[in-house]
């Protein structure tokens, strides 16, 4: 089966889980790094690496507030990230219907 046309940034298990989880939030909301990690079950190192890859293509925003032990990191899906997930879902549907 060909996976041509599928967004290679999202088409990775960990990043697909990150994007799909963030897409479940109401528009304009963000999720803390810790809660996202708990929901997906990745190690902190894995999660931050995948998040940086998603941030590089402007699919997520990562906002850190405070410093030291009191710091908080909030992650949110951008409009571009939402659109990419919609397109990815449509492409997958097309591929599966063509089987």
């Amino acid at each position: 089966m060909s996976a041509a046309g599928i967004d290679p940034v999202i088409h990775v298990p960990a990043r697909l889980q990150i994007v799909a989880t963030l897409a479940a939030l109401p528009e304009g909301d963000a999720l803390s790094f810790t809660r996202l990690q708990n929901m997906i079950g990745l190690t902190p190192g894995n999660l931050i690496t995948h998040l940086r890859k998603l941030e590089d293509v402007d699919y997520v925003t990562i906002e850190k507030t405070g410093s030291g032990p009191a710091s908080r990191t909030a992650v949110a899906l951008t409009h571009r990230g939402h659109a990419a997930l919609d397109l990815y879902t449509e492409t997958l549907r097309g591929l599966l219907n063509g089987l």
């Binding site: 996976a3 290679p8 990775v12 298990p13 790094f33």
Partner: peptide, 17 residues
């Protein structure tokens, strides 16, 4: 939240689906 996590992405997680 994310201090000291490094860049230790598991190679297996890069596997395509």
């Amino acid at each position: 939240d994310i201090s000291g996590t490094g860049n230790a992405a598991n190679e297996a997680d890069e596997g395509r689906l």
